[in-house]
């Protein structure tokens, strides 16, 4: 299998994972969505120098990933795509924010580096949280949960079709790159003069494919609602799952658990 086709198949990684049947997968999508949103809120709300406050939040992915039987490294690999953007945003922090901060007895560090580290870790955890939701709940069930939250059908449909569009775009990209590589065997990468036509072709072909898929859906009675056929009923375990995590996130938000544990061990 060549690398282009492989990268396309990787995109279906989340579809495959969401089809598993573990305890996490059995949670009602509405509760999974709420917990994921609360997690994102908890991560985002950490202040810019509060590095230690982030450490307890690592527990969420560390518990969910093995429970949901998600390959950790493969998932982590997908989070690094956001790093260039985050590094681009935060790289000047150490330059402009150069006050000294005491991080341990006798050890101080440039505050800019701390805020930079917080930004990177926050981004990684936030993306990880979102990917965990996709891997455990699946796009169709997320859409179902959004509809339960009375999100307008139009927006949910946009989400679903965008997801399908990305899939098709990846497939078309793989085909175009394969076709290019087969006729330019000695070339590394794509010649700059071919970038324009390739991008144009990709756009047109993906649009065509997406239109066809949409027609195929409409011809089979699609009215804007995805019906997965799975019957979800709210049970005690859903409430227990959501309340446990909610309690943990509240604890992390209001108390400095890392600081507390640190003071316990150091006797400070």
């Amino acid at each position: 299998m060549n690398s282009n086709t492989e990268s396309f198949l990787n995109l279906r990684f989340f579809d495959d994972l969401s089809a598993k049947r573990t305890f996490v997968h059995s949670i009602h999508p509405l509760f999974s969505l709420i917990v994921a949103c609360l997690y994102l809120f908890s991560v985002i709300s950490v202040e810019k120098y509060a590095l230690s406050r982030l450490f307890p939040l690592v527990l969420y992915p560390f518990i969910i990933i093995p429970l949901a039987e998600i390959p950790f490294l493969k998932l982590l690999k997908r989070t690094v795509y956001v790093l260039p953007l985050v590094i681009g945003i935060g790289i000047f922090n150490p330059l402009f924010d150069n006050q000294e901060m005491l991080i341990a007895q006798g050890i101080s560090i440039n505050a800019g580096w701390i805020s930079f580290a917080v930004l990177v870790i926050k981004a990684e955890l936030a993306v990880l949280g979102a990917l965990i939701l996709f891997a455990t709940t699946g796009i169709v069930n997320i859409a179902y949960a959004l509809r339960l939250l009375r999100v307008p059908r139009f927006f949910v449909l946009q989400l679903l079709l965008t997801y399908r569009y990305i899939t098709l775009m990846n497939l078309e990209t793989a085909r175009l790159l394969n076709a290019y590589a087969l006729r330019a065997p000695d070339q590394k990468g794509i010649a700059m003069k071919a970038w324009g036509p390739l991008a144009g072709q990709l756009l047109i072909r993906t649009f065509d494919a997406a239109t066809h898929v949409y027609h195929a859906m409409k011809l089979r009675g699609f009215d804007g609602e995805y019906r997965s056929g799975r019957r979800f009923s709210v049970s005690f375990k859903d409430f227990a799952y959501a309340i446990s995590w909610l309690g943990f996130f509240i604890l992390v938000y209001f108390f400095d658990i890392s600081g507390f544990l640190g003071s316990l061990f150091t006797g400070g």
Binding site: R12, D16, A19, R164, A209, V213
Partner: peptide
């Protein structure tokens, strides 16, 4: 459809 890729889109 002429192209079955257009028709089979679920998981």
């Amino acid at each position: 459809f002429q192209n079955p890729d257009n028709q089979v889109f679920m998981n």
